[in-house]
C-alpha cells in the first residue's frame, strides 16, 4: 500500500434497496402518521379511532369504518345498496376506472346511505368514502344522497351527512354538475318543512360537494385538520401567484372565517351528535304547542 492511497477517496459498496420505499412499514401491522411521522401499531391506532396517539392527526376513514364508530351497534339498515354508476358519456377510460375503484375499495359507489340510531336517536345517514374515486359525486352518488334526503323527509327523521370528496366527477361532466342542484333542491324541500340536517366535513371536502349539500347543514361540524374548500390550493396559488399559509382551508381556518359551527375531535363526535339530536328531539312538543 502506497502512502498516497491513504488520501484517496474510499469506495463504498452500495447495497441495493429491497424495493420498498424508505419509511414504509409492513402492510397492516404498523402505521405511520402522515403528520408527525410517528410509527404506531395499527391495533393501537384503531382503538384510538384512527387518530394519531401522538399528534391527534385524524386518519381518513372509509364509509363503513365511519358508520361503525358513529351508529349504535347492529341497527344500521342500508338504503339503495344496488345503485351503481353508468358511463353515460362513454368517457375515455371511465368504465375501466369504475371497475378498478370497486375492487380497490370493496364499495359500489362513493357513498353509503341508510338509517339507524345514534345514541338512541333514529336518523338517516349518508357517509361518503374517499377511497372510492376520491369520493367524487356522479349521478349515482347524487341519486343516493337525494333519496336519503327524501327518506328523511318522508319519515320525519333527522339527516346526518359525513362528507369527503374531491368534488364533482369529471367523467360524467354536466350530469355530475346537475347532482349539485338535485341534492340542494331536495334539501330545500326537507329543510323548509322543518327537517334537521347536520353536516360533518371530513378530510377533504372540496368542489362540487362542498359547494352543494355539504355546506347547507343547519349545523356544520368538521373534524380537526379536515381540508374544506371550493377551489384547490394549487389552482388558487397559480391564480393569485402567492404561496398560501399551511393552515389554509383547514377546519380551524374555516372556523376562524365563520364557515362552520364547531371543530369536533373524532372521540367526541358521537357524543356531540347525540347532544344535537337530543336538543331537537322535543320538536313534537313545540309543534303541538303552536
Amino acid at each position: 500500500m502506497q502512502i498516497k492511497d491513504l488520501f484517496s477517496k474510499k469506495k463504498y459498496a452500495t447495497i441495493p434497496s429491497t424495493g420498498s420505499k424508505r419509511g414504509d412499514v409492513p402492510e397492516g401491522l404498523m402505521n405511520k402518521c402522515n403528520k408527525c411521522g410517528k410509527i404506531q401499531y395499527s391495533k393501537e391506532l384503531e382503538k384510538n379511532l384512527k387518530v394519531c396517539t401522538s399528534c391527534s392527526y385524524h386518519f381518513r376513514l372509509s364509509a363503513w369504518e365511519r358508520i361503525s364508530i358513529t351508529m349504535d351497534d347492529n341497527d344500521f339498515v342500508e338504503y339503495d345498496a344496488d345503485i351503481e354508476s353508468l358511463d353515460p358519456l362513454d368517457f375515455p377510460g371511465y368504465a375501466g376506472k369504475l371497475e378498478q375503484q370497486k375492487k380497490k375499495s370493496g364499495l359500489k359507489e362513493a357513498v353509503i346511505t341508510g338509517e339507524g340510531t345514534i345514541g338512541g336517536y333514529p336518523a338517516v345517514i349518508a357517509v361518503m368514502s374517499f377511497d372510492f374515486f376520491s369520493g367524487s359525486m356522479g349521478s349515482a352518488v347524487g341519486e343516493k344522497i337525494t333519496r336519503a334526503i327524501e327518506s328523511a323527509h318522508e319519515k320525519q327523521l333527522p339527516l346526518l351527512i359525513f362528507s369527503t370528496s374531491g368534488g364533482a366527477r369529471m367523467q360524467e361532466s354536466i350530469l355530475s354538475l346537475m347532482q349539485m342542484a338535485k341534492t340542494s333542491a331536495a334539501l330545500s324541500k326537507f329543510q323548509s318543512a322543518g327537517g334537521l340536517f347536520i353536516s360533518v366535513f371530513t378530510d377533504p371536502t372540496m368542489g362540487g360537494v362542498s359547494a352543494s349539500f355539504a355546506s347547507l347543514g343547519d349545523y356544520i361540524l368538521a373534524e380537526p385538520g379536515a381540508v374544506v374548500g371550493f377551489a384547490g390550493r394549487l389552482v388558487i396559488e397559480q391564480t393569485i401567484r402567492q404561496k398560501l399559509p399551511d393552515n389554509f382551508q383547514t377546519a380551524e381556518f374555516n372556523l376562524q372565517h365563520g364557515q362552520l359551527d364547531k371543530v369536533v375531535h373524532r372521540k367526541d363526535m358521537k357524543h356531540t351528535l347525540t347532544k344535537l339530536l337530543d336538543m331537537h328531539a322535543v320538536k313534537e312538543v313545540a309543534i303541538s304547542g303552536e
Binding site: 349539485m180 342542484a181 340542494s184 333542491a185 334539501l187 330545500s188 324541500k189 329543510q191 323548509s192 362542498s210 359547494a211 352543494s212 349539500f213 355539504a214 355546506s215 347547507l216 374544506v228 374548500g229 371550493f230 377551489a231 384547490g232 389552482v235 388558487i236 391564480t239 393569485i240 402567492q242 398560501l244 389554509f248 382551508q249 372565517h257 365563520g258 364557515q259
Partner: peptide
C-alpha cells in the same frame, strides 16, 4: 367558473354557491 382565490374561500365560496342552489329551488 367561480373565482379561485384565497379571499373567495375565506368568505365562503362554497356556501355562497350552495345557498343559491337551494334557494333557487324554492
Amino acid at each position: 367558473g367561480a373565482y379561485p382565490g384565497n379571499t373567495a374561500e375565506e368568505r365562503g365560496q362554497s356556501e355562497a354557491i350552495a345557498r343559491n342552489l337551494r334557494e333557487m329551488a324554492g
